[in-house]
Write a protein that binds this DNA or RNA. Structure first.
Lengths: 222, 222
DNA sequence: GTCTATATTTCGATAGAC
DNA sequence: GTCTATCGAAATATAGAC
């Protein structure tokens, strides 16, 4: 294909097809999240992308640099998603229900990069720096955001006073952990996708019920 | 040192010092849980053990076999601990409080192998088979055990009826997840050990309160 | 930009002396 | 059982033609 500044000269149209660089990046993300930084092979990434191995070095110089590009992209996506689904609804009850719903939908679609990110962060805490930096450039960590949200809801007497750190740990744990353990187990016990989906939808209700019952204030209701 | 069937001939005493094999195994566990199967280097394990690299092959033939020995040991320890701390107390309230307490104590001591195990299980689901096999040889999975425990407590009207799978996911998530995310974060934000310990002890109470309030039956109390 | 061929390094594994 | 020396495979990275 003849390319010129992102335009496909042959067809005279803006290129919608992925550039070689983008193809490689996508393939690298697939392989890295599956095998990890150390287990991934440049050859496997090239095969996954359907390009010559040498091109990975042409575009990204080294495995190390390619890895960092992939991780930055993942962190960018994760942080943006969390920030986006945090900005929901006025009443705390609605906020909580919506947050759990969207958060779990996001996790279901991206559970592959979950364990990967946690593992790489344990080996190299530089990743944690990147995540925290990205959050603060977006206006604050989820902890900061939720603390403000809780403070407001308490004043409005929607919920009882709760410690933000405890609440964040509760919701993060309940939302995220199943997507770390269940996928490996599911592939062993032959849990079908549809049964998995049903389980996930039930979890949404269960998590909301558990957390909301714990903090809500009943105004005149039994 | 002159050795003969586990006896130290020079001193005429049973050997309390670790054998070379045991020293290697311990070092391997340290390095594998820190760097993962792919990131670990035989040389680094040898250095950690303070022995010649060649001895690793003498005792374990290959990196693959050494890795599997380490993983089997870890799984053995994890399963035994879970089974052990599950067999506690008659009343469900006491059982729950004690389980959370001991489970979290165990996790605090062994959080290094947590992310490692979850990561390796994601890459190679053979590990899941090993875990499930070990559990069934010990009388059943935690899910089986808790289902029976719940059934009994419901009959005694100590708790309302609950779905075992939901309850297991709730308690596992709340107990385990913090030990996956917090250690990397703690090392970045300079959270001291004592403050971490305080946080953990508060978590125990918070988790028990949250779960118990959700399932208990109030007999005549407000 | 893309290919083939090759350089360079790292690492698991073995041989053989003691 | 333990050591030194070394092999051979793999994997990252580069050279140079097209």
């Amino acid at each position: 294909m003849v390319k010129f500044f992102g335009y496909n000269i042959e067809k005279g149209l803006p290129m919608k097809e992925a550039s070689t660089e983008k193809v490689i990046l996508t393939a690298a993300r697939t392989v890295f999240t599956r095998k990890g930084k150390d287990g991934a092979r440049m050859q496997e990434i090239a095969d996954e992308a359907g390009v010559n191995k040498m091109l990975l070095h042409y575009y990204f110089r080294s495995k190390e640099k390619l890895f960092h590009r992939v991780v930055e992209e993942i962190i960018e996506q994760v942080v943006n998603s969390v920030v986006k689904i945090s900005a929901q609804a006025e009443r705390f009850e609605d906020f909580l229900r919506t947050f759990i719903d969207l958060h779990i939908d996001f996790l279901r679609e991206n559970h592959d990069m979950l364990t990967f990110l946690l593992w790489e962060a344990k080996k190299d805490t530089g990743l944690v720096h990147t995540v925290l930096g990205k959050f603060s450039s977006m206006g604050g960590t989820p902890l900061d955001y939720l603390a403000a949200k809780i403070h407001y809801a308490v004043q409005k007497e929607e919920i009882r006073p709760v410690e933000p750190i405890e609440f964040v740990l509760n919701i993060a744990s309940l939302d995220i952990f199943p997507f770390i353990v269940l996928p490996p187990i599911a592939s062993v016990v032959n849990l079908s996708d549809s049964r998995m989906d049903a389980l996930v939808e039930k979890r949404k209700k269960e998590i909301f019920r558990l957390l909301w019952n714990d903090i809500k204030i009943n105004n005149g209701k039994s």
